[in-house]
Amino acid sequence: MDRWARPRPESITLDGVPRAVEIARLSVGEMANVRLYIRMLSLQEQRLATLADRPVLEQLAIARDERDANEQLGTWISEVVTTSLRPVTPWLALSGVEVVDGQSYCAAYDNDAILAAFWAIYLRNTLTEETRKNSASPRGSADGSPQSESPRRGDAPESPAGDVLPSDSTSAAAVSVTTFPIANPSGTTAAASRPASVLSAV
């Protein structure tokens, strides 16, 4: 599978400026890792949410563990961004780093932007519930009328509307300085629909 054969367009607002990027197609194996990281982010958030309720010594121990776990998780998330995101055209970030690929993106921006890119990568490789729902045939008339079977099975995944993500900027993801807490995944900017072509391998 050529991950960059048909990249998905996306827009991420960085330093107040919307930037056009492309997102690679993730394999099933890569998506399994991404989902694992998301699960870890969620668990981390749950642990941190109850941190204040615990005794101080326990809080310190948990904080140490979280720091170590967070470092590894941050590395993995950055790796996803490094390998699966690239700018449509290079730009110069406010940090002074020229963003030419995923690696320089991670170098140019903070956790907030890296996490936003991570969510964008996940979302653009995920079939939305809207798309799933749009694919369903109306089953109210199971009397054999042509109408009940009219939405043919190939329609939905090619639907431009079904694959568009909720609006608002990815930069809206709330991220603290030291952690990669789970953020609202609805924060990516709507982009053009994916290419309508199908794989040529078959």
């Binding site: 599978m1 197609r25 993730l26 394999s27 099933v28 194996g29 890569e30 998506m31 399994a32 490789n125 995920t126 079939l127 794989l199």
Partner: peptide
């Protein structure tokens, strides 16, 4: 299977 396009 793990090499396939996840979205597809």
């Amino acid at each position: 299977a793990s090499d396939q396009d996840a979205w597809l």
